[in-house]
Structures are given as structure tokens and as C-alpha cells.
Design a binder for these strands. Structure first.
Lengths: 132, 132
DNA sequence: CTTAAAGCTTACCGTTACTGGAAGGTCAAG
DNA sequence: CTTGACCTTCCAGTAACGGTAAGCTTTAAG
């Protein structure tokens, strides 16, 4: 199949498929006589796998590991476990940071009843010299 | 004061101060005879303001607006309000996305009791052709 | 048969908000 | 005088692509 068909089937843009090949996440595609990339249906599965990992915010480098580890069926699950666990830890860390952030922004939004910049409580809060 | 002193006082790296000037977030600094940038203590306040905004994940473009709107004391607070409100909306949106993400990752982490890649439930889940 | 549109190729720039590093000028101390 | 700590500018790299251009090939229509 052609790259546009693979793109449609996997829901990954053709541009992104070429990008993945260029950075070595996908192996070099077979070319047809006209130079077009030629794909097999197995490539759909690989790309769906990659897309799902990206939807989980897993980095390309980590996905490379997940892809390569699958080539050895008898390998241990440890790598997979640790990548997923660490990803979860990162997500939770970001959640904590965002919670603080949302809290501060909420306080700012509700603080200001002024109508002129010179009295704006939001700006006054942000200008305060007190450290984080 | 020199850039390193301003950096220390504002807790913004000197490199970043030059960067802010280069993109027009800070006005062009006065130069001394030797070519060094020369700052006044008022610049500390400006940089602290910028740093606090960045800690709230407010984009440079939005900060430019917040800085410029402060030059007119009689201007309306509407711009400030909307920037902060939209920032809060973005943060909340990200929080919702991360919550889903964490949920999926948790399910993956607890799903797999296998020790070999060929039986790994995590990889099997990620390979499934079912769409998001 | 011709032509126009669509799809393929590569290659390079832009995004965000910086950070690192190289090459070179300046300044204060020993 | 030299060493080291500053300062300067400029260039490159980060993550993961998206946009656009220039130039092929294929395909559908007239």
C-alpha cells in the first residue's frame, strides 16, 4: 500500500510517517520502481502502536525501546514495565504542578474587581517582589 | 547594575534576560562605555513580574501584552482578565487530558503479570487496532 | 493526446522558550 | 603580565512535528 493509505489506516499523517522513518523509529521503507514508499498491512499495526503510545505522551525515545524490545519475544517485561511506570510518574508530577498553577490562577481571577489597570489586583499580585 | 546583578536580584538567568531583550519582551538596555548592558532597579520589578507570569505558564506573547498594558494606567482591566482566565482554562483543559492519561497508564501498569514480552498484556493493549 | 489535479519525493524553515557553547573583548586582582 | 571572571555576539540544539516549495509520477477528465 502507499503512504497515504497507510496514513488513513493507521490515523497517522503521511508526513509524520516519513518523519518517523527519518529518525529511525520506523525501519526504512521498501521503494517501488517510481520511488514511492511501499508498505505491508503489518505496518498498520506498528503505527497504531506508536500512535497509542504518543497519545499516552510517551516520548519517541521510549517508544523506540518499546518497539525494539518486541523483536525478542522471550525478553523480559521489565523494560516495558519501567517505561510505563515512569511515564505514569511523570504524568502525576505534572498533575501536581498543574494543580498548584490552577490554584494560583483561580485566586488571581477572582481577586480583581477593579476596572482600571492602575488598580488591578492581578497585576499588583504579579508585581510583588516576594519569591515563589 | 550589571546583568549578572540583575539576574541575581530577579532570579532570572542573564542569558534569559538577553533573550527577552532580543525578542522584544524587554526594551533595549542602555549600554555603558564598554558595551556592557546597564540596568536600573526598576528592571528588577519588571523581570520578577515576567518570571512570575512564566511560573504560571503564561506565554511570552501574553506577557508582552501584560507588560504593554501596564504602560497605560487608565486602560481597562479586560485584557488582563481575559489573559488570566484563558490561561486558567488552558490549564484546566490540560488537567482533564492528564487525568484520562493517568487513568489509562494506571490500567496498563496493573494489568501485566507476565514475565515474557510475548505474553505482555501492556504491549497487547497498545497493539490493539481499536481506535481511541 | 493533452492537460490539470492529486499524490509522491526531498529539503528546509518555523514552532516554544529557552540553554549550551564558541570566539573574542573587558576588568580586577595578584 | 597573566589569570580568571565577567561581558559581548552568534550559532546550534531541544521535541515532535507542521507548513511550504520545487519537482517528479500517476490518474482522471476532456
Amino acid at each position: 500500500m502507499k503512504i497515504s493509505e497507510l496514513a488513513e489506516a493507521s490515523q497517522v499523517p503521511a508526513k509524520t510517517i516519513r518523519y518517523y522513518e527519518s529518525i529511525g523509529l520506523l525501519s526504512t521503507a521498501v521503494r517501488q520502481a517510481n520511488g514511492y514508499r511501499y508498505y505491508h498491512s503489518a505496518d498498520i499495526e506498528t503505527l497504531v502502536f506508536i500512535r497509542r503510545c504518543r497519545e499516552l505522551n510517551i516520548s519517541i525515545d521510549d517508544i523506540k525501546q518499546l518497539v525494539s524490545v518486541q523483536r525478542d519475544p522471550e525478553a523480559s517485561c521489565a523494560t516495558v514495565d519501567s517505561i510505563i511506570s515512569e511515564q505514569l510518574a511523570r504524568v502525576r508530577q505534572t498533575q501536581r504542578e498543574l494543580a498548584k498553577l490552577a490554584h494560583t490562577l483561580e485566586a488571581l481571577v477572582t481577586s480583581c474587581r477593579s476596572e482600571q489597570i492602575q488598580d488591578c489586583c492581578i497585576l499588583q499580585s504579579l508585581r510583588a517582589t516576594d519569591g515563589a
